[in-house]
Design a binder for these strands. Structure first.
Lengths: 325, 325
DNA sequence: CACAAATATACAAACGTTTGTAAAAAACTC
DNA sequence: GAGTTTTTTACAAACGTTTGTATATTTGTG
């Protein structure tokens, strides 16, 4: 592999000049710079990032830490972020926390150790606050998205969760459902708290009143969603706003097992708008985010060193599961 | 951040001894080693990978390059590989080629530049051979999986594609379908070539004969699958073995648009066993791989420096879309 | 106890960059 | 053309580790 020393030797100049030339430093004469660039291309030079990072104390790596890469939402977010970051000359390391605090810490430490330029993160369910993030990353730029800790400084990109859940719940109300429960998420996550708030607000605005009894929290997976839906059905709910599509799927199965027709006897709306929501029978109404846009927004927030919170709208996709005539 | 020099200073020994002690080198006395370990823990030392990598000329990074992270198969593969690799002390960088040769080359170059210890790759559709991989990675260990170039040296982990497609096709034959076509993939990919071979073998073994006319290649997405299925239906096919679930989904829609009942008028089997295959109506029969196992196998192949090809069995999940009574 | 052998540690260079400071070269000024 | 400023390049140290070689220490032998 050719080094800047090789180039310097070939041109009879010093490595430092080569380094500056390649970095576009105005301290080197245009003529020299062009000669260096030509020689570098000729010799197939590629900057050794490891050496560069060591000397500079920071790298061109941006870490993206997500619970799970395979979820529609995170996969699309990553797509959006990667687009923007890689065209800005950054390399992206993707880490999965698998919803575990330990894995999250491990990933952050590895990123810190590689002197990442920054980290874009949506924390795991097990993370109750952002102290470990701040502690490990020090003063490195942190961009949070979707699941954010409000007290942690730095940029945040979130969906309009409160507004979206309001829309979803209001949609159920307008369809004539009377006892609307919610299969909620974890109250350690902002996003889920916001959704609950939107759900509550819609009920109150419609004069239906909010009843804590019809909130079934900690349910975002198929199994927990199904279990919670069973309780909701026993409690007499005739509609459910679910904080996740997998939980909504569980709820649909619970309804079917209870002999209820969807959407005639029970209406169901999910959240995330996974690919399969549209192709199942009955198709699942779902509150979709714009993960790709969120990824781009997060990347730009990092690049511009912006801070503050950016809110990306959410969109309700009405399908059969809530479309009572 | 504390360095080995700090530890050496604190203990009145030299950095080299600290380095060796932390690496478990037998050249340092047990007593010294313990003292170093204690001090290191006390001072919160963490090895600077960047410096270590620079000196050693290689890192503890393993790159995984896949077309798309969000596909069930790749996401699960990554899960399996990450498990094994991270408990062996490696860090995993995940790169997406987005099925584009350019992105694949870019990812490989970045990995090479970070002096990755090796790369685990399933190449993009646009890659017609493995020359660019070998050229960029030099003599670094390469483990290929699923889509492999047989002429590229190094370990390979593949599903039993030929055998699986044989099973799938034979299943359709046994169900009484007569004119069985295949929505095939790209002939630049081993996996798809193998599946076609299995399909052909089953037809020939059953005495139905192979007819090139009923092979509709280059169709792995919803749109291309649908388009190819339209042709197949016009050609009089009453069953389709599809090389991908998204293509199978397109085929189902094409069948419905043509007024055909599934599975009565046309039988459909997909490949990959995506999550949603089970929940749609009619549910989609699909030939599933064991991506998690494949990921573990690939990681072990890398760790053990093994070479040669490992074949992981595939499993047919029979569901409604092919279950003609 | 002297001497050799084995063990444990110190020294120093290297990995390939970047960057502050010094020196050289070029361009002005009077 | 000498002196001054500006531009351009060279020198050298540093980032934190690893590792071959040399030195110091300990252990063993007669």
């Amino acid at each position: 592999m050719t080094t800047i020393t090789d180039i310097a030797l070939a041109l009879g100049i010093t490595p430092s000049t080569v380094s500056r030339a390649l970095a576009g430093n105005p301290r080197v004469k245009e003529k020299t710079r062009l000669a260096v660039e030509k020689k570098a291309a000729e010799m197939g030079y590629e900057r050794n990032f490891v050496a560069s990072n060591l000397r500079k104390g920071r790298s061109n790596i941006v870490g993206i830490v997500v619970p799970r890469v395979r979820r529609e939402f995170f996969a699309n977010f990553i797509g959006g972020a990667e687009d923007v970051l890689s065209s800005a000359g950054y390399n992206v390391i993707i880490c999965q926390s698998q919803e575990s605090l330990d894995s999250e810490i491990k990933a952050l430490k590895a990123l810190k150790n590689y002197r990442a330029a920054g980290v874009i993160i949506s924390h795991s369910i097990e993370s109750k606050d952002g102290n470990h993030i701040r502690e490990i990353m020090g003063d490195l730029p942190i961009v949070q998205f979707d699941r954010v800790f409000p007290d942690l400084p730095g940029a945040k990109v979130v969906g309009a969760n409160c507004d979206g859940a309001y829309q979803a719940t209001m949609h159920l109300i307008k369809k004539g459902y009377k006892r609307i429960g919610t299969i909620a998420g974890y109250m350690s996550c902002m996003a889920f708290v916001e959704r609950l708030a939107g759900y509550r607000m819609a009920l109150e605005d419609a004069g239906l009143g909010f009843n804590k009894k019809y909130v079934y929290p900690d349910s975002i997976l198929y199994e927990t969603g199904k279990e919670s839906a069973r309780k909701a059905i026993a409690d007499g709910c005739d509609a459910l706003y679910c904080c996740g599509d997998y939980a909504a799927l569980g709820a649909m199965d619970a309804a079917r097992e209870a002999g209820l027709r969807i959407p005639e006897d029970i209406g169901i709306v999910g959240t995330a708008n996974e690919f399969w929501a549209d192709i199942m029978t009955p198709s699942l109404s779902s509150l979709g985010q714009h993960p790709f846009d969120m990824g781009q927004a997060a990347a730009h927030a990092f690049l511009d060193g912006r801070t503050g919170t950016e809110i990306i709208p959410m969109e309700l996709h009405v399908r059969q599961s809530s479309n009572k005539q």
